[in-house]
Design a protein around this nucleic acid. Sequence first.
DNA 1: CCCTAATGGTTGCTATGTTAAGTATTATCG
DNA 2: CGATAATACTTAACATAGCAACCATTAGGG
Lengths: 152, 152
Amino acid sequence: MTDDTDHAQSARFAPTARSLPIALLRARETVMGPIRVMLQQSGISEQQWRVLRVLDELGEIEQSAIATGACLQLPSLTRMLRTMEADGLIARRTDEADRRRTLVRITDKGRALILAHLPDSAAIFSRLEERFGARNLKQLLDLLDELRRIDL
Amino acid sequence: MTDDTDHAQSARFAPTARSLPIALLRARETVMGPIRVMLQQSGISEQQWRVLRVLDELGEIEQSAIATGACLQLPSLTRMLRTMEADGLIARRTDEADRRRTLVRITDKGRALILAHLPDSAAIFSRLEERFGARNLKQLLDLLDELRRIDL
DNA sequence: CCCTAATGGTTGCTATGTTAAGTATTATCG
DNA sequence: CGATAATACTTAACATAGCAACCATTAGGG
């Protein structure tokens, strides 16, 4: 007998709760719950929200930089920016110094959308801080940031 | 002037590196890199991989339980299981006690597939442990597990 | 300079994400 | 017992994910 459970688990993968990719995903599901509720109010997707946040943070940048910052693939971004531009949330222009590049920036309308969610966002954050603990939260963010920089 | 940068960031969102959802996503991208390479060898998707891992861990379970464990939506799962069943990786049967439920289990072929990746998987894990630190890794997993249980 | 390679995006295709509506089965309550 | 609600999926429709192929532009080496 190689196993003491009733379903014959294969020899020796770590339990999924100790699998980093799965653990990251599950934790994220918890955190995203209230944020999804918030975003539904304005009919914007989670991905579009990330794009706006990154643009707000970094200013006018090229698409590759958005892709990196918002964890999106360039093909997805190409399609999303098309609709976001049509919705007036962002603006695009060709970089004249290097005509391969497209520079993207957030518009006032896009900025207004973000700002409209600031109170809700702050409320979610403080509830998280309260229930998870400020110390835990800081520690987690530090670890995640360190992990992100690792070269595998 | 409300800001000291050159691109007029909106008043007061935390930098995206300190946004938990984004930080979780970025960290996950780092970790998934080598795993994606591994999975490409067998032509299986990341999601199918999670399903197999969960089934291997939990035995024969209903689809809702897979959805929860693998962080998938039921509609996605419905479609995925159809192809996975056709590929012989999983098997389904109706629960006779409650005919609404479908019970799913991993097949020998499915089990063989994940076992085939055990060495690679272990190598990735140990490289991660080496570069990120065993202590950091444990601490991170503990924090993530605690976060997952929080009710927001 | 010119040819070739590299870079930045786009397009096409298939799979999955996400919401809403639909179906079959079971549970609940009057 | 019967109407209704709840549960466990399934289907449909559209957006995004992920890979590969392609295009335009720029960089580099002979």
